[in-house]
């Protein structure tokens, strides 16, 4: 019984160390690890009561989109740093106080998971 417990503790410890090493490894920080699902993100982005991105942005597969914000294309070129894009969706008024974009994260319009999903989708455009 005691032996079994020790083995278990050892295994858990190893796994923890492995997780830490992974997290610290260059190029594999939390921002780059895909925590969102782009397919789910597309649905959320196109949902009128959630993302409703097309109210203001030209986007793929959307008829008569709005043009208040810039078209959502070439996103990885515009935002090489994915975290910057995330910050923009979280609260665009931080970077530009006059921005009329709703603060999807700060105001809880999307949940953390939904925001991560949308981030993956938008970043893929």
């Amino acid at each position: 019984m005691i032996a079994l417990k020790t083995t278990l503790a050892g295994a858990v410890g190893t796994a923890l160390i492995a997780a830490c090493v992974l997290a610290l490894a260059p190029g594999l920080n939390a921002a780059d690890a895909p925590t969102g699902n782009p397919e789910a993100g597309k649905e959320i982005a196109n949902d009128r009561k959630l993302g409703n991105c097309m109210a203001c942005h030209v986007m793929p597969d959307i008829e008569s989109p709005g043009n208040i914000g810039p078209p959502l294309i070439g996103m990885q070129a515009r935002y090489p740093d994915k975290e910057k894009l995330r910050a923009q969706i979280w609260d665009a008024t931080v970077a530009n106080p006059d921005s009329s974009m709703p603060p999807f994260g700060k105001h809880g319009i999307l949940t953390e998971q939904q925001l991560n999903d949308v981030l993956e989708y938008i970043w893929s455009l």
Binding site: M54, A55, S64, P65, G66, I68, D98, H107, I109
Partner: peptide
Amino acid sequence: LNFSCANCHVQNPGNLLR
């Protein structure tokens, strides 16, 4: 959604909301 009246009707008249 954090909009003022002005966000739409001062800042963006003539632009498309959808």
